[in-house]
Amino acid sequence: VREKAIAATPLGRAGKPLEVAYAALFLVSEESSFITGQVLFVDGGRSIGAAPA
């Protein structure tokens, strides 16, 4: 299952917990103060389509 998930990810690797933490840290920071009503996908590109062949 893990290998299939990685193969379906355009970045070609699994995400790291720290990468998700960085996204959350950004969202609670002042740098994101003008961002409203958005969904931030931290998924290595899986939400935009299949990995290249």
Rank of each mutant, 00 (worst) to 15 (best):
residue 1 V to E: 10
residue 1 V to S: 04
residue 2 R to H: 14
residue 2 R to E: 14
residue 2 R to F: 07
residue 3 E to Y: 11
residue 5 A to F: 13
residue 5 A to M: 13
residue 5 A to D: 14
residue 5 A to G: 12
residue 6 I to C: 05
residue 6 I to L: 07
residue 6 I to Q: 13
residue 6 I to F: 07
residue 6 I to A: 07
residue 6 I to S: 11
residue 7 A to V: 14
residue 7 A to F: 13
residue 7 A to R: 15
residue 8 A to N: 12
residue 8 A to G: 13
residue 8 A to Q: 09
residue 9 T to A: 01
residue 9 T to S: 03
residue 9 T to P: 02
residue 9 T to I: 08
residue 10 P to A: 01
residue 10 P to E: 00
residue 10 P to W: 09
residue 10 P to R: 04
residue 10 P to Q: 06
residue 11 L to H: 10
residue 11 L to R: 15
residue 11 L to C: 02
residue 11 L to K: 03
residue 11 L to V: 10
residue 12 G to D: 03
residue 12 G to Q: 11
residue 12 G to W: 14
residue 13 R to S: 06
residue 13 R to I: 02
residue 14 A to V: 09
residue 15 G to S: 06
residue 15 G to P: 15
residue 15 G to D: 06
residue 16 K to D: 11
residue 16 K to S: 07
residue 16 K to M: 11
residue 16 K to H: 12
residue 16 K to P: 00
residue 17 P to Y: 01
residue 17 P to N: 07
residue 17 P to F: 03
residue 18 L to I: 15
residue 18 L to P: 04
residue 18 L to F: 08
residue 18 L to A: 13
residue 18 L to R: 15
residue 19 E to I: 06
residue 19 E to T: 06
residue 19 E to R: 02
residue 20 V to D: 00
residue 20 V to G: 02
residue 21 A to D: 03
residue 21 A to E: 07
residue 22 Y to P: 00
residue 23 A to D: 00
residue 23 A to L: 13
residue 23 A to E: 05
residue 23 A to T: 14
residue 23 A to K: 01
residue 23 A to W: 10
residue 24 A to H: 12
residue 24 A to M: 15
residue 24 A to N: 13
residue 25 L to N: 13
residue 25 L to W: 14
residue 25 L to H: 14
residue 25 L to R: 12
residue 25 L to C: 09
residue 26 F to K: 08
residue 27 L to F: 10
residue 28 V to N: 09
residue 28 V to E: 00
residue 28 V to H: 04
residue 29 S to C: 03
residue 29 S to A: 02
residue 30 E to L: 00
residue 30 E to D: 15
residue 31 E to F: 13
residue 31 E to V: 05
residue 32 S to R: 10
residue 32 S to C: 08
residue 32 S to V: 04
residue 33 S to L: 04
residue 34 F to A: 00
residue 35 I to S: 06
residue 35 I to D: 01
residue 35 I to H: 05
residue 36 T to I: 04
residue 36 T to D: 10
residue 37 G to I: 05
residue 37 G to L: 01
residue 37 G to S: 12
residue 38 Q to N: 04
residue 38 Q to F: 03
residue 38 Q to M: 09
residue 39 V to Q: 07
residue 39 V to P: 02
residue 39 V to N: 08
residue 39 V to L: 07
residue 40 L to F: 14
residue 40 L to V: 12
residue 40 L to K: 09
residue 41 F to T: 01
residue 42 V to D: 02
residue 42 V to P: 03
residue 43 D to K: 09
residue 43 D to L: 01
residue 44 G to T: 04
residue 44 G to F: 03
residue 44 G to L: 00
residue 45 G to C: 12
residue 45 G to D: 05
residue 45 G to L: 07
residue 46 R to Y: 02
residue 46 R to M: 01
residue 46 R to A: 06
residue 46 R to W: 05
residue 47 S to V: 14
residue 47 S to P: 11
residue 47 S to T: 13
residue 47 S to Q: 08
residue 48 I to P: 04
residue 48 I to H: 09
residue 48 I to L: 10
residue 48 I to V: 12
residue 49 G to W: 10
residue 49 G to E: 06
residue 49 G to D: 02
residue 49 G to T: 08
residue 49 G to S: 00
residue 49 G to M: 05
residue 50 A to G: 09
residue 50 A to I: 03
residue 50 A to H: 12
residue 50 A to W: 07
residue 51 A to T: 14
residue 51 A to R: 10
residue 51 A to P: 12
residue 52 P to V: 00
residue 52 P to S: 02
residue 53 A to V: 11
residue 53 A to G: 15
